[in-house]
Design a protein around this nucleic acid. Sequence first.
RNA 1: CGGGGCGUAGCGCAGCUGGAUUAGCGCACUUGAAUGGGGUUCAAGAGGUCCUGGGUUCGAAUCCCAGCGCUCCGACCA
Length: 395
Amino acid sequence: MLWSKYFIPTLKEVPAGTEAVSHQLLLRAGLVHMLTSGVYSYLPLGWKVLKRIEMIIREEMDAAGAHELLMPAIQPMDLWQQTGRDKALEEVMIRFKNKKGQSMCLGPTHEEIITDLVKSFVQSYRQLPVTLYQIQAKFRDETRPRFGVVRACEFIMKDAYSFDINIEGLQKNYDAMYGAYCRIFSRCGLKPIIAEADTGAMGGRVSHEFLVPAAIGEDKAKDESGVERQCIEVGHIFQLGTKYSESLGALFLDEQGKQNPIIMGCYGIGVSRLIATIIEVHNDEKGICWPQEIAPFTIEILPLQVKDEEVMRVARSYYDELTKRHIDVLMDDRDESAGRKFNDADLIGIPFRITIGKRGLTEGNVEIKIRASNAVEVVSRDSALERLSALVAGE
RNA sequence: CGGGGCGUAGCGCAGCUGGAUUAGCGCACUUGAAUGGGGUUCAAGAGGUCCUGGGUUCGAAUCCCAGCGCUCCGACCA
């Protein structure tokens, strides 16, 4: 991708009314744009990161035996009345009436919807267990949205639901999800604290929260030292039991021909919140330092003098070769000053940068910078590609 | 929902206390020139419902009232 043809509206100054570092960098690096309080657009670079995170989640969820589907955001209130959660979630639900006068809402979560769905198809123990998930926008009329996308009114969540015939099956699925969550967060460059938690308005018996220590955290947790730390909740898993299946009549026939409520679990990850959390953890005074697997691009090529034929010839040869090797490359081909290009590069935080300039080329050299450590290596122009490949491969 | 702060160009801000030519500054933007390894320099430009409504006044960005919006702290929160 050529920077000049892309859409990366970076900001030099810190936007007013932002406290959280992640919020500032999300805006400054041109990843998101606020429409109104708690409601954000994802710009191309931010959307790309979101897609990378979603890809990791899909890989791990699929590997754990879950199947992706997509449920509607528009939901009839009567389902919610059946479980009584129209009252419990009254404050956060965005409600409206359709033209027929039916009471509707925009889904703040999907336990009722998925239970109703599974009820329509599952009658026998032979059809269980099954785990379904989706990645989709959720809507909550938050009293106080804050920290940018950390607490938003419209946000992207991965929500999974397991259906079992007994507690042992639930425990097995729960453990599988627990393991998948550990891998997902690790691949996103996070080391969450896992804490037993209150089941709150979700109901059920056991639940675990995945908490990442951060300055802007809204939750509190204690790690080995016993000191209470502020944390962002990035995931929460619940053993729901039969709360929803009983109230909505999602039953199955067991081997004895006896009807039982399906045993459920639910598993959530705040996908859009993850972007903010990752930035909160991976940044320095100059900008974002993306972990490689979720970075919007892997390598940034930075030719300094775009009007110099030799500089551009070398830059393009790297660009073509890396692209051929299926490495996602961004080339800053803008005719801007060196300082601006360097600062923008640090701000958007592509893991590896290769700088090509007239000065270095006279010696036959180019420069490679590793964003996370800010380490700089001067290498010969002929060995640069091999060095970059090694860095990308984690060597 | 309780308490504080803020609202002036795309962004960041000054001006308001004590009302008065044509509302400024920095960045960004346009044009031209020079420059070319950490937000470079010079010149010339374009860009405004001063959040909205009402009031006071000869005259309001500025004073008064009401509302809206954003934000922070707290409460609340899968």
